[in-house]
């Protein structure tokens, strides 16, 4: 059961709503529920996570029941149902990447960031988690950073250190 956190109501900007409309136009008029997954991605790109009020708003926009949105948002792994770090690092932890050292990268991140999987660093900048195969097995270990899903391949502990420094300096 998902907990209801204290959440302020959400108002979608007109730019966001314009994007919603564009996506909705891709499907037959009575099938606009098809827009649900892309819309949730847009919401997440905007707010960095998907809150219950945001889901309710999406339901309202698509004219479906809120439970239909919750069912979908909780089924798929990409939707963050609680706030993450500004940079959410996702490292592949599946077989082929483990053959070339993915587990080392994960434990290195844990040490480097000083938080456990799923937690956010005190400065709010980073969170990380292991995810399943990202379809880049030949270039492992790999990680991606949402919300842009920029991709980094052939990771080493050094390249991860550098990446984190770069991200810190970016702000």
């Amino acid at each position: 059961m998902l907990k209801v956190e204290e959440q302020t109501p959400v108002v979608f900007s007109s730019e966001l709503l314009a994007k919603f409309d564009d996506i909705k136009s891709r499907y037959p008029a009575d099938k606009s529920k098809s827009a649900l997954l892309p819309l949730l991605h847009l919401v997440q790109a905007e707010y960095l996570w998907v809150s219950t009020p945001a889901m309710d708003k999406v339901a309202e926009y698509l004219n479906i029941q809120p439970i239909e949105v919750y069912e979908v948002a909780t089924f798929y792994t990409m939707y963050f149902l609680k706030p993450q770090g500004k940079y959410a690092l996702e490292v592949c932890r599946t077989g082929p990447c483990c053959l070339v050292g993915a587990e080392k990268i994960l434990s290195h991140l844990e040490n480097k960031l000083g938080v456990k999987e799923g937690e956010v660093t005190a400065d709010g900048l980073f969170s990380f988690r292991g995810v399943e195969c990202l379809a880049a097995c030949g270039y492992g270990p790999v990680l991606q950073i949402s919300p842009e899903y920029t991709f980094y391949e052939n990771l080493t502990t050094e390249s991860v250190d550098k990446l984190i420094e770069d991200l810190k300096n970016k702000i």
């Binding site: 098809s34 649900l36 997954l37 069912e71 089924f75 798929y76 990409m78 995810v131």
Partner: peptide
């Protein structure tokens, strides 16, 4: 059409469900 993160959506009928905006 983007998926939402679920291997099972590679199965063709799960993919169609997902494309209809449902659980895969």
């Amino acid at each position: 059409q983007p998926g939402g993160g679920a291997y099972i959506c590679g199965e063709e009928t799960a993919l169609l469900e997902s494309l209809e905006g449902k659980r895969g």
